[in-house]
Simulated scan of single mutants.
Amino acid sequence: MSQSLSKMYVHIIFHTKHNQSLIRPEIENELYAYIGGIIKKNGSIPIKINGTENHIHILTTMSKNIALAKFVEEIKRNSSRWIKTKGEAYHQFAWQGGYAGYSVSQSVVERVKKYIENQKEHHKTQTFQEEYIQFLKEYNVDFDENYLWTEYIAPSGHNNQLA
């Protein structure tokens, strides 16, 4: 085969550092559009981006030329830099250290898209923490709840925040 072809759908979830309510309504649409631009710049196609005041969900196709960890790092690093330019209220803005990423079958892309579209309504009855743990369990991801919401000190002495 002379060329590499792929179409991978990925559902990415991450939250603000310490789950702070920092994604304010006056900037969220602009933030999501900016993140869409970062995704495109990395050779991928954003399908749906939405969230609440403390976390976001991204449904995207992912380029075959970038690893998921690097892709999420690019999104978080660049969007964090951008949001800090939006005023004094955002100067301390930061994303958490980790993320969740799930493969999505083409047969359920529309269902995932609708789920992401309805985040604000959904979170009237379920907290982000409950939702996050539900996804981890649905995808059979091993996790230690002791490290989901707090900082973890890696053995090398570097601070890493999990989840």
Rank of each mutant, 00 (worst) to 15 (best):
S2D: 12
Q3I: 14
S4E: 11
S6L: 02
M8A: 15
I12D: 01
F14Q: 00
H15D: 04
K17G: 03
H18K: 14
N19R: 15
N19E: 11
Q20W: 12
Q20E: 14
E28W: 09
E28L: 06
N29M: 05
N29C: 03
L31D: 00
L31E: 01
Y32T: 11
Y34C: 02
I38F: 04
K41M: 12
N42R: 02
G43I: 00
I45L: 12
P46A: 01
I47D: 00
K48P: 10
N50L: 03
G51V: 01
T52E: 08
H55D: 01
H55V: 02
I56H: 02
H57V: 04
I58G: 07
T61V: 07
S63H: 04
I66W: 00
L68T: 15
A69P: 05
F71K: 09
F71D: 00
F71S: 04
I75S: 10
I75K: 13
K76D: 00
R77W: 09
S79K: 01
R81W: 06
I83P: 02
E88D: 08
Q92P: 00
W95C: 07
W95F: 03
G98R: 05
Y99D: 13
Y99Q: 06
G101M: 10
S103F: 02
V104P: 01
Q106P: 14
V108D: 05
V112S: 02
Y115T: 03
N118E: 13
K124Y: 11
F128N: 04
Q129D: 13
E131A: 12
L136Y: 09
L136F: 10
E138R: 15
V141A: 09
E145W: 11
E145G: 08
N146Y: 13
N146S: 13
E151C: 07
Y152T: 15
Y152E: 09
A154I: 05
S156N: 15
H158M: 15
N160T: 14
L162I: 13
A163Q: 07
